[in-house]
Each structure stands twice: as structure tokens, then as C-alpha cells.
Design a protein around this nucleic acid. Structure first.
Length: 178
DNA sequence: CCCTGATTCGC
DNA sequence: GCGAATCAGG
């Protein structure tokens, strides 16, 4: 098979429609996807619009959750000592940064906890803290009740919003070490 | 391993 | 110009 004007036109059309090279090759018949790609390059229409149509028959992957802002923060608030009394300073600077938009209320999320909650089950009222390794079987979301306007439950909100300790560690310099 | 497009290079 | 082989990336 050769590249007749007709076939080239069809190639151009299908390519700009977002079909993959192999799909176009199948459509045209008598050529491989390599041939299609090669032709596309020779024609100089390499780049094309993104977000192609239904595109590939590639196996859909399960959604991967974005990692939590900070996985673990074992750091406890430093007790403040006044005389003999140790005051626990529970200074979690009330996570305010989020917009004060009215949270939507989903009535079905009355349950305080959805066990093994998938991302599809999360609402404005469920904690979206991912638990476990996103690729593994046991992965789920915390799904405890979250405060209005905050994506995490009380516990995980602390994880997420506690201020980062001063990272500047001038004392880490080791003279002579590479 | 499936797919994708990009590139190379002998024909 | 053509396209198989190969490469790199998701």
C-alpha cells in the first residue's frame, strides 16, 4: 500500500481527531503504526491537540490519591513550664487557611466512619486522609467525620496543618564532611 | 507487559 | 519517501 492523496487526507483527519497511530493504521489498513508515525512526521504534523477523544483501549488504572501534605508528625507540643506546673500547650493554630465557603451537606454521611472508604465515598464531611500505600490492597481513606470546611478529621487536621518546625539546622553542618 | 509517540537508518 | 527497529515514557 502506498500513500495516495486519499489515504494521506484520511491520515491527517484521523490524526487531528486524536486517534492513536495504531488506531489510524488499523483504520487505513495495509500499514503499521510505525508507518503512520513515520508519515505523520514527514508531513510535519507531529504535535496535535491534547485531550484526544476516547483514545486508547488502555486498561484504566485505579485512581491514586495524592500523598498527604505531611505523612507523620510525631512531634508533640512542647510543654511550657511555669514553676512546678507543666502546661500542655495545645497550640494547633486552628486551621483557617481554607475558604469559608458553606460546606455542602450530604445527608447520607451520618455514619461516623466508612470502613475502607474509597475515594468515591468521600464527601465534604469525611476525612480525606489516605491510609496505607496507595498501590496496595488495604489502601483507603480515613473517612472519620471531618469538620465543616476542613478536609480532615480532627486528628488528621493536626497532621496536615501543624506548622513545620524550623528547618534551618545550622547545627547540622559538619566541618570537613563532603 | 500493555500501550503511546519519537527517532534512527537502511532501503 | 518509506517503515521496521528501537527508544523513552506512562
Amino acid at each position: 500500500m502506498s500513500w495516495t492523496d486519499e489515504r494521506v487526507e484520511l491520515l491527517k483527519k484521523l490524526w487531528s481527531d486524536g486517534l492513536s497511530a495504531s488506531q489510524i493504521a488499523a483504520e487505513l489498513g495495509g500499514v503499521t503504526r510505525n508507518a503512520v508515525i513515520g508519515k505523520v512526521h514527514r508531513l510535519g504534523l507531529s504535535g496535535r491537540a491534547k485531550a484526544p477523544a476516547p483514545q486508547t483501549a488502555q486498561r484504566p488504572k485505579k485512581p491514586v490519591a495524592a500523598p498527604p501534605p505531611r505523612p507523620h508528625r510525631p512531634t508533640a507540643p512542647t510543654p511550657i513550664t511555669i514553676g512546678a506546673t507543666a502546661l500542655k500547650a495545645d497550640i494547633v493554630p486552628a486551621a483557617r487557611p481554607l475558604p469559608s465557603a458553606q460546606p455542602k451537606v450530604y445527608s447520607l454521611s451520618d455514619a461516623p466512619l466508612i470502613s475502607n472508604a474509597s475515594i468515591l465515598q468521600l464527601t465534604e464531611q469525611t476525612c480525606k486522609w489516605p491510609v496505607g500505600d496507595p498501590g496496595s490492597d488495604g489502601f483507603h481513606f480515613c473517612a472519620r467525620r471531618s469538620e465543616a470546611g476542613i478536609p480532615y478529621c480532627g486528628y488528621h487536621a493536626r497532621m496536615a496543618y501543624q506548622p513545620v518546625a524550623d528547618r534551618r539546622r545550622t547545627d547540622r553542618r559538619i566541618a570537613g564532611a563532603a
